[in-house]
Design a protein around this nucleic acid. Structure first.
Length: 408
DNA sequence: TAAGCGTGGTT
DNA sequence: TAACCAAGCTT
């Protein structure tokens, strides 16, 4: 343990003073309601405070209690999370709310061990909720705390177990929630990853890295894996005209990338084909000649989509299986995930309903994951950012030539 | 233990 | 443009 009892007392006092004077006014600091603290901690996982604030306000307006959240549909829950990323957080929070209502009679459990059992609640979140909402003298080690402690102890790469031990010894038993938030606040505002403000740090006198001049080298950056690159074809089937336009969307499986979110049917190119496309791609539209792997992928995607959604090919008069060649490309959309960079190549195909043909473009049967959704309102379904972008370009394309022409 | 999982801001 | 980062969790 790098600090004796006297040092620990000094750290507690100075940190709590710092927090009392400099704490930011944030919406989740307006009450100690465990549910509200819990939601904020989940939203803040790997996400900036400024980004979270508006989401948090909307969430609390719609889901003010754990009971209200538990009764909501997963569709609406994801819709309110749309744009925040890491969507498993929303699914886990929703499921955890149901657990709290059913197994805990609607009362959020007050121990680290019990909180830890809830889906989406790990060691950090359990400690944060237990200390902030319930006053439990337990540590809460996030990225900020890791950085602050690594510098205080001048340890290049402290293990999680060591960090928990240190934080547990330091936490103020009288005000554990404020102490833990103070540690995080210090990391966020003063003890920053680059150019830390040591001159205004309340713990400067206790900081070994500062004394050694190594503060900017602590802690060691986490090495990250390679970012995979991919090219994918997206099929934008639409029917109707103008404000009545609808697009065919598919709900993605609950596990994996963008789980539970809705999307135009999309298929990745093989890695080799994807590389070829990226090398040749310059224009803002995708050219598809007969031998193009893009066209092959689009053909396969079109066929399986029509089959799976139960749409008859005669809803594309004169085109049938040749419909893919008649597809119009929309502008490519480049999107970067944490571990994946995708170039989406969207193609649109209008499905027409001939007079007297009631099966022109029927609704998919309810047991499929497909649905026709109004383009303008997006049907209220949750969409990933890249899909919003694809649908926006369809809107602007359809808007031209419709009433009034393009918007100035 | 390491990889998978989003997005937007900053450098 | 690319790399890096931000109140982590799950498998």
């Amino acid at each position: 343990m790098p600090w004796d009892a006297g040092r620990i007392r000094a750290i507690r006092t100075r940190l709590l003073d710092f927090y009392d004077e400099g704490r930011r006014d944030l919406p989740w600091r307006e009450s100690l309601d465990p549910y509200r603290i819990w939601v904020s901690e989940v939203m803040l996982q790997q996400t900036r405070v400024d980004t979270v604030v508006p989401y948090y306000r909307r969430w609390m307006e719609r889901f003010p209690t754990v009971e209200v959240l538990a009764e909501a549909s997963s569709e609406e829950v994801l819709r309110l999370w749309q744009g925040l990323g890491y969507y498993s957080r929303a699914r886990n929070l929703h499921n955890a709310a149901r657990v709290v209502v059913e197994a805990w009679d609607g009362v959020v459990p007050n121990t680290v061990e019990a909180l830890r059992q809830l889906p989406g609640v790990g060691e950090y979140t359990a400690g944060a909720v237990a200390s902030i909402a319930f006053g439990a003298p337990v540590p809460a080690v996030d990225g900020n705390v890791r950085r602050v402690l690594a510098r205080l102890a001048d340890d290049p790469d402290p293990t999680p177990a060591r960090l928990r031990r240190w934080a547990g010894a330091l936490v103020d038993p009288e005000r554990p929630g404020d102490f833990n938030q103070g540690l995080m606040e210090l990391g966020a505002l003063v003890c920053t990853p680059r150019a830390p403000g040591c001159a205004r740090c309340p713990l400067e006198a206790e900081c070994r890295a500062r004394r050694e001049g190594t503060q900017e080298l602590r802690p060691l950056p986490r090495r990250r894996g390679r970012v995979r690159r991919a090219v994918a074809v997206s099929l934008v089937l639409h029917r109707g005209t103008g404000a009545e336009t609808e697009v065919l969307l598919e709900r993605r499986p609950d596990d994996g990338l963008l789980g539970g979110m809705w999307s135009t049917p999309t298929r990745e190119l093989s890695p080799e084909a994807g590389n070829g496309v990226r090398e040749g791609a310059e224009s803002d539209r995708t050219k598809v000649d007969e031998a193009s792997p893009v066209l092959e992928t689009l053909r396969g995607l079109l066929r399986t989509t029509m089959e799976d959604a139960g749409l008859p090919f005669h809803s594309m008069p004169g085109r049938k299986m040749g419909a893919a060649k008649g597809a119009d490309s929309l502008p490519p959309v480049d999107h970067a995930f944490t571990h994946l960079r995708v170039r989406y190549l969207p193609f649109r195909i209008p499905l027409v309903r001939e007079d007297g043909d009631p099966d022109g473009s029927p609704d998919p049967s309810p047991d499929t994951s497909f649905r026709w959704v109004p383009l303008v309102a997006r049907g209220g379904v949750p969409l990933p950012v890249a899909q919003e972008s694809i649908l926006a370009s369809l809107e602007s394309e359809i808007g031209e030539g419709a009433e009034g022409g393009p918007v100035p």
